[in-house]
């Protein structure tokens, strides 16, 4: 039962202070990308990318605009194929299972791989509570009971560091929140279904510096609960929040390394050119 699964994960969610960060010595691969290609019409935007995303780590993907980093991200939860005239080939494994496999539904993949977009996207017709619980409605076992939902909503909002700000107005319309709060609401909404992976597509691009800082701190904390992949054009941000960083250029993955290494001692000349500001 997926609900039991949900609950099991929620226990881990709440027990985060007890369990602490994952054992740094052990690198568990959550998502393995092998030979990924993605197309818009006849234009190839992702070329033969292979990369691992480790559990309980934040991996940042950087690169100049148009390098295919967002498209690569959208291939990880099969969002790329929702746009018309698109195509994907290659293999993406989530915990060892190919998400593009013949008997795998894109919808179930998206429940396990949450996503937050550049601009906040609260559902304008829903209250704060209903927004956070939106993903629960479409769980295969049906919507959990009201009491359970309230518990899950509170946990998700606490995880997104938003609970204290909204706990007294859960029934208010979500569009009344500030931009930064809306973005954290979207993170809470993605966390509510206890995904294994959280994809963040330039989550601070439309936010002010203070909101950006709040999101960055949140991302840093989230690694205990979930595997995070964050696409950003901001190298400082990548250095601040991520354990490892991948650099992409013209659709290709140039290199991936621990952030401290990549930003101080890159292995590829192109990476060095980029991080030292010679182009892009």
């Amino acid at each position: 039962m997926a609900l039991a699964e949900t609950d099991r994960r929620l226990v881990r969610l709440t027990g985060r202070t007890a369990s602490g960060p994952a054992d740094p010595g052990k690198e568990e691969t959550r998502v393995a990308v092998r030979g990924l290609n993605a197309f818009y019409g006849s234009t190839q935007v992702v070329r033969d990318v292979s990369v691992d995303f480790h559990a309980h780590e934040v991996t940042a993907v950087i690169g100049p605009s148009g390098c295919g980093k967002s498209t690569m991200l959208r291939c990880l939860n099969r969002m790329h194929e929702t746009a018309p005239d698109t195509r994907v080939s290659g293999c993406v494994e989530l915990d060892g299972r190919d998400i593009y496999g013949r008997d795998v539904s894109a919808i179930s993949i998206r429940r396990h791989v949450g996503m937050v977009f550049q601009r906040p996207t609260p559902f304008p017709t829903m209250s704060i509570r209903d927004n956070v619980g939106a993903g629960l409605r479409v769980l295969p076992g049906g919507m959990p009971a009201r009491g359970e939902v309230d518990v899950i909503v509170e946990r998700a909002l606490r995880s997104a560091a938003l609970w204290d700000e909204v706990k007294d107005r859960l029934s208010d319309n979500a569009t009344g929140l500030s931009g930064g709060q809306q973005q954290r609401l979207c993170i809470a909404r993605a966390l509510a279904t206890s995904p294994r992976v959280l994809l963040l597509d330039e989550p601070t691009a439309s936010l002010d510096p203070i909101s950006t800082q709040a999101i960055e701190e949140l991302v840093y904390e989230l690694r205990r609960e979930v595997t995070v992949v964050i696409v950003t054009h901001n190298m400082q941000q990548a250095a601040r929040v991520s354990d490892r960083t991948a650099f992409m250029l013209s659709g290709e993955l140039v290199e991936v390394a621990p952030s401290s290494v990549l930003f101080t001692n890159p292995g590829d000349a192109r990476t060095e050119d980029y991080i030292t500001g010679r182009f892009g």
Binding site: E81, P84, T86, G101
Partner: peptide, 12 residues
């Protein structure tokens, strides 16, 4: 549904 179907099937 995209005219060019994804190389892998579109789920079950």
């Amino acid at each position: 549904p995209s005219p060019v179907t994804p190389i892998r099937g579109d789920g079950p």
